[in-house]
């Protein structure tokens, strides 16, 4: 098992945004996190990625506690993420966004640059090629030289995924990766996620689009009012009485 939440809690003043959340995410799986607005899904991702440490409980990555580590330390352990309210480097091009995203893997030392050694040109070319491959994967290769702030909404979401992938993570966190996207783009993101999972990457994603979640995820955890209702296969979860009650309604049941 790659990731485990153990009775994770988070308080905002008197509000208990996360209330003893516990579940496991298996390696190489696509794990969905669903629930009504305000259920604590994004808070859980923030607790995991170090942006907002939990008030209680433990987050274990390969059995080691990581709660309370600053974001860059969590990232260095192979965790990359996207944001619900897309956070791109707006004035940079798509390619530059991905190049910047290689921070953890590309050494890019200063000395060879100062001395104009040929090694840094080879290194630049290598990382540029890798960045282009990531852009290709999310279908943005042709848009490489376009600045992030002039992309369409769906492209922006895909670029953010590309930037996260640039750090070659083992665990990818996606916060509403297809929110507000058109059908073709959604299919593209699902295809990318499947490809990554097939390559051994673990994906934990938050999404409200039930067709996308049910069709893509190996397992799903449902949160409501900061509590875990259940974790299970899509067809189990979709017919779970409490889930139907709290979030989905009866018509989504796959069984």
């Amino acid at each position: 098992m790659l990731l485990e939440f153990q009775v994770v809690s988070r308080n905002f003043g008197g509000v208990r945004a996360l209330d003893e959340v516990s579940f496991r995410v298996e390696e190489g799986q696509i794990h969905g996190l669903i629930g009504p607005n305000g259920a604590g899904k994004t808070t859980l991702l923030n607790a995991l990625s170090g942006l907002m440490p939990p008030s209680g409980g433990a987050v274990l990555l390969r059995g080691k506690p990581i709660q309370g580590l600053p974001p860059h330390r969590v990232a260095a352990l192979g965790v990359a993420r996207t944001f619900q309210n897309i956070r791109l480097f707006e004035t940079m091009t798509c390619l530059e966004n991905v190049l910047a995203g290689q921070h953890l893997v590309a050494r890019r030392p200063l000395w060879p640059r100062l001395l104009m050694l040929p090694s840094h040109r080879r290194e630049e070319a290598l990382w540029r090629e890798k960045a282009m491959a990531v852009l290709e994967l999310v279908g943005l290769r042709e848009r490489a030289e376009v600045p992030a702030n002039s992309l369409s909404y769906g492209e922006r979401r895909r670029l953010e995924i590309a930037r996260a992938l640039a750090s070659e993570p083992r665990l990818l966190l996606l916060d509403e990766p297809v929110a507000g996207m058109r059908a073709e783009s959604i299919a593209k993101v699902a295809e990318v996620a499947r490809k990554l999972a097939a390559g051994g990457m673990t994906i934990l994603l938050i999404e409200h689009n039930m067709n996308f979640v049910m069709g893509l995820c190996d397992r799903i955890t449902v949160l409501n009012f900061g509590r875990t209702i259940t974790t299970g296969l899509p067809k189990e979860v979709s017919c779970h009485p409490e889930v139907v009650e709290a979030y989905l309604g009866a018509e989504v049941c796959l069984a």
Binding site: P71, H72, A80, L88, F89, M92, R108, A166
Partner: peptide, 18 residues
């Protein structure tokens, strides 16, 4: 790259390891 990333978006920069 790290400096420019911070200038553009501190939170995103931290989340990608800066």
């Amino acid at each position: 790259w790290a400096l420019t990333s911070i200038r553009e978006d501190e939170t995103a920069a931290a989340a990608m390891g800066v």
